[in-house]
């Protein structure tokens, strides 16, 4: 069983953290993973920086630009991740845009992921139909789960189709928006969380976008299996550096 699937079976609400590889410093990728693991997060999404991240808000845009300026690139990420499985068993997902993967070669990329011990991919601009027609066998052969997004606007029948085509978890985008930290969720979001919950999907749901603190984490995970924090974590990392990681994770975990 894939590490992600195994993690989904655990009883508690999962905390997943997104960060951008090669940020704040080029060599920070592995130290950040280690610090997150030590701080007790459940899953990590490693952002592969892209020049044109059109689903991202200002915080992740800025971290991507900085990481690229630091010299981050795909091959280097795999080099940095070499040996990571001797250090940690935490589920690791690479999240990025499809173009860099396409240039690396989808097959070569999947093989490298397997080699270094990546468990899944989130490629928001690789659509479900293209994935299923062209790439699914490659992902599967390399033990990679592909994670799809749904949003409050996604029609139910499409959610069912995405559920059918997924076997790790469904990434539930909290609201119609690009990535970015928000203060809280309104009645509209709560209704959406409930609607998805009542659909009884076969895949667990992890909520992302707009989660920044213990309150929003608790709200997002009332029904869902877990939540992902990205922008708020990167903001903290920018301000406090790696020493801020443990206190940040503690502050999310403490019950509100």
């Amino acid at each position: 069983m894939n590490r992600i699937q195994e993690k989904m079976r655990s009883g508690h609400k999962l905390l997943s953290i997104y960060f951008t590889a090669g940020y704040p410093k080029l060599e920070d990728t592995v130290p950040v993973i280690e610090a997150l693991d030590e701080a007790g997060v459940d899953m990590i999404e490693i952002g592969l920086p892209f020049s044109d991240p059109l689903a991202d808000g200002p915080t992740i845009q800025a971290s991507s630009t900085a990481a690229l300026k630091n010299g981050m690139h795909t091959e280097l990420l795999f080099r940095q991740l070499k040996g990571i499985r001797e250090k940690t068993d935490i589920p690791l997902i690479i999240m990025g845009y499809f173009n860099p993967v396409l240039q690396y070669g989808v097959e070569a990329f999947c093989k490298k992921c397997r080699e270094v011990g990546i468990d899944g991919l989130i490629l928001p601009d690789l659509p479900l139909d293209v994935y299923q027609e062209e790439y699914e066998p490659l992902f599967k052969a390399n033990g990679l789960l592909n994670v799809f997004l749904i949003t409050p606007q996604t029609p139910n029948e499409r959610i069912r189709k995405i559920d059918e085509g997924s076997d790790g978890f469904i990434y539930m985008v909290s609201s119609a928006s690009t990535t970015g930290a928000r203060d809280g969720f309104g009645p509209e979001q709560r209704a959406y969380f409930e609607r998805i919950h009542s659909m009884g999907l076969k895949n667990p749901q992890i909520v992302g976008f707009g989660i920044s603190n213990a309150d929003t984490f608790a709200q997002a995970t009332t029904h869902a299996h877990g939540a992902i924090i990205g922008s708020a974590f990167i903001k903290m990392l920018t301000e406090d550096g790696k020493t801020g990681i443990a206190p940040f994770i503690r502050s999310i975990r403490k019950s509100p």
Partner: peptide, 11 residues
Amino acid sequence: GGAFIPEMLYP
């Protein structure tokens, strides 16, 4: 061609 878009744009 095609539509290589994140799900947020799908609707």
